[in-house]
Design a binder for these strands. Structure first.
Lengths: 221, 221
DNA sequence: ACTTTTGCACTGACTAGTCAGTACAAAATA
DNA sequence: TATTTTGTACTGACTAGTCAGTGCAAAAGT
């Protein structure tokens, strides 16, 4: 509690040794797969430590508790996703494409993310709609960050006249996220032999209304 | 022990007492909300028994184990959903509507189901894509039953020339299910003030391609 | 009629085990 | 030297599953 910081230049105990950072990373990676497979409660701290190849005490040296480890893991993962979506939307914008192209680019970015971090995605989906859990508020916040990116692009498309202003932006954003999420998880779990392009193509079809009987205006193949 | 059935018509001890059936129903109801809120492992058998208003022993009198209770609960719930989807598709068919109308009717049936059994839906989503769990195979089976209903309607639509034969039926079915599932769960969790009609309308927009820029051919308001 | 037996449904105290978190001295690292 | 990690041992709260026994209503026996 002494304000006068002492030796290693450091604020609040954050951002320091690469070593510690590496340990935390190993713990994230161990925890994410185990929790995705078994769930939070069924995963023991001993298992996490063993899989990460560190001593149990190290877990508690780096994280205040099992729950805190999990919460920071959630923040970390959703941060990656949000950055990836924003990036995809921006790239598509720079290439001068339409907002619908940006949407399509975000769908692909979502698929790539899920392909790369399937365990994190599983775990996120499994926890998102629960109530009465300690990290509920954390989840609501990070969820909103990710969904906001999609909503932003939809809003831009409506304002630019590309999409009907009749669409309900929050609901449509949620539906789009769900479409990608569930299609991707099903792909991984039940038809892993399909390629990412296959899955992307199927979702583009849906987005562009060729399923519901509409005439496609965007995209070709 | 006497084979000649006597008073309460009963064979072999199966399908009998309303009392037992009622107890099992109470246990289902208690378990579904608790597990939806907390997850399987974090929910104790004592909690389930208490919420159901029975003694712990009764749980084990009626179910071989906690896992078995959960598995039977899953079967029970997905059975209800599947029946509801089939029913909706059939009604729409009888009214002479198109297959796309049947799809729309199924979306609504899905929403109604989730509205009625939100806890079951949460729990189902949370467990579906996990690996290494005892009831994994049970889940795969019941999932397939439900998805098959959607795939059937899509197949019919393609055969009838209503939908392009370029669509990938399994992937599209998964995406549609995901769209409904996630939109509905988000609705319940984050904007519960919206009406079912609002949500349905937003999803119909998506299905009919008015989001992706296509021309709507089906549906009106 | 009456007593006794049967079997189902349920009870709740109890057991054997599990697991998050702690303690701490010694070692490794930077 | 200061920080970080290790290894081992420990505690105490919590939990899945067990089991001897209760209550009761309908049969069977007399």
């Amino acid at each position: 509690m002494n304000a006068g910081a002492t030796r290693p230049v450091r604020i609040g105990g954050m951002e320091s040794s690469t070593r510690r950072q590496a340990t935390r990373q190993k713990l994230y990676e161990a925890a994410v797969t185990l929790i995705a497979e078994q769930g939070f409660s069924a995963t023991t701290v001993d298992e996490i430590a063993e899989r990460a190849g560190v001593a149990k005490g190290t877990v508690y040296y780096n994280f205040a508790s099992k729950s805190v480890l999990f919460e920071e893991l959630l923040r970390h993962g959703v941060g990656l996703l949000t950055a990836s979506l924003r990036d995809a939307a921006q790239r598509a914008g720079e290439k001068g494409g339409s907002k619908v192209d940006a949407l399509d680019a975000m769908i692909r970015a979502g698929l790539v993310f899920i392909d790369e971090y399937p365990a994190f995605t599983q775990l996120y989906v499994a926890e998102l709609w629960r109530t009465n859990r300690a990290w509920q508020s954390t989840l609501a916040v990070v969820r909103q960050e990710a969904v906001a990116v999609v909503e932003g692009v939809l809003r831009g498309a409506v304002e630019g006249g590309e999409l009907s202003d009749e669409i309900d932006i929050p609901l449509t954003a949620a539906a789009l996220v769900g479409m990608v999420l569930v299609a991707a998880l099903d792909w991984q779990a039940f038809q892993p032999e399909r390629s990412l392009d296959d899955v992307h193509a199927a979702l583009s079809f849906l987005l562009q209304g060729r399923v519901g009987g509409g005439q496609p205006l965007t995209g070709r193949a």
